[in-house]
């Protein structure tokens, strides 16, 4: 019997939306079962959320105080212990999965397939390379298949499932060499999460300053949108790093993406190519962002946002 185990991403209270997208990819493998592993300090609530995902057979719940924060060096040995029952182990290709899964793969002595964007068969996958400017079709090596899922390529599965929850005790020795110190988030707002938002309003270097970014936030709030940014805007200190969209930031697929003052470096475009509709506003008519935008408007972004707010 071949089964896939999807490692749930969560913050202790909430299942991260990337998990449902990874489950969607895992469901395309055509295996006998899709299970989800929840590793947490106290994971009953998250396990319930995972159990409701459509297509999930069993939620494997591993509770350990060491799992309070997602530290790869601590999670990896536990996942290795679970992996022996599975033909595939997947996780979302978020910073959580990217940090964790290669550590699992190396311990198991197998290569990893990163950023799976299409499943051709249980062992053949497409994945992007060169910032998405080429796609390679790859075949996994013999043995267990370890992969991360490019979440923007998959719509989240629904919540019509009713998986059983199985609590597992693992006798695995965990290292003491890595300690969680803390997390600074820019959160505290009611804005939708960038990776899950149906609409995203994004600002680039053209926004000009941290203060000016308030117009981006204001428009986003009016639209109920998440807030994104280009690398240039984050590098310049206009906005914290967790808003960065692109090859090395977040890869997103909202229904509507509105880019203000973003020129459109290929690394940024790599993060938005799956968006439903792209709107670009830039004062430079030759900006590369217009080559991918469905609707382009050449003009001053502040004037445009001002008019937009009046029109909405």
């Amino acid at each position: 019997m071949s089964k896939v185990l999807v490692i749930a991403e969560h913050d202790g209270d909430q299942l991260n939306g990337s998990t449902a997208r990874a489950v969607a990819c895992a469901s395309e493998l055509g295996l006998d079962a899709v299970d989800v592993a929840v590793l947490a300090a106290d994971g009953a609530v998250v396990a319930d959320q995972a159990a409701s995902l459509t297509g999930v057979s069993t939620v494997v719940l591993v509770q350990n105080p060491a799992n309070e924060h997602a530290v790869a060096a601590l999670l990896a040995p536990q996942i290795e212990a679970l992996a022996s029952d599975y033909s595939h182990v997947f996780a979302p290709s978020t910073t959580f999965g990217k940090d964790l899964m290669p550590r699992v793969a190396a311990h198991l002595g197998v290569p990893q397939i990163s950023d799976i964007m299409r499943v051709e068969s249980a062992t053949v996958f497409d994945r992007p390379v060169y910032a998405g400017n080429a796609v390679v079709t790859v075949e996994a090596a013999e043995g267990i298949v370890i992969g991360t899922v490019r979440t923007a390529s998959y719509a989240a599965v629904g919540q019509e499932g009713s998986a059983s929850i199985e609590t597992r005790e693992l006798s695995v020795e965990l290292p003491s060499h890595t300690r969680y110190v803390g997390l600074q988030t820019s959160g505290g707002s009611d804005r939708p999460d960038l990776q899950a938002a149906a609409k995203v309003v994004s600002g680039g270097r053209g926004v000009g300053s941290e203060e000016n970014f308030s117009v981006i936030y204001k428009l986003a709030d009016k639209l109920g949108a998440g807030v994104g940014a280009s690398r240039a805007a984050v590098d310049a200190g206009f906005i914290p790093n967790d808003h960065q969209v692109g090859q090395t930031g977040k890869i997103i697929a909202p229904e509507l993406y509105m880019a203000f003052g973003i020129s459109g470096a290929i690394q940024h475009l790599a993060g938005i190519k799956d968006a439903g509709t792209i709107v670009a506003v830039n004062k430079d008519a030759d900006a590369p962002i217009f080559e991918v935008a469905d609707y382009g408007l050449v003009g001053d972004l502040f004037e445009v946002i001002d008019e937009l707010e009046k029109a909405l």
């Binding site: 290569p111 080429a134 390679v136 217009f290 469905d294 382009g296």
Partner: peptide, 20 residues
């Protein structure tokens, strides 16, 4: 053991839309 690359292809490109 390695991942075998079967082929490399050009991704579907987004088409430029219109200027409003």
């Amino acid at each position: 053991a390695s991942v075998k690359v079967l082929k490399t292809s050009t991704p579907a490109k987004r088409q430029a839309g219109i200027k409003v």
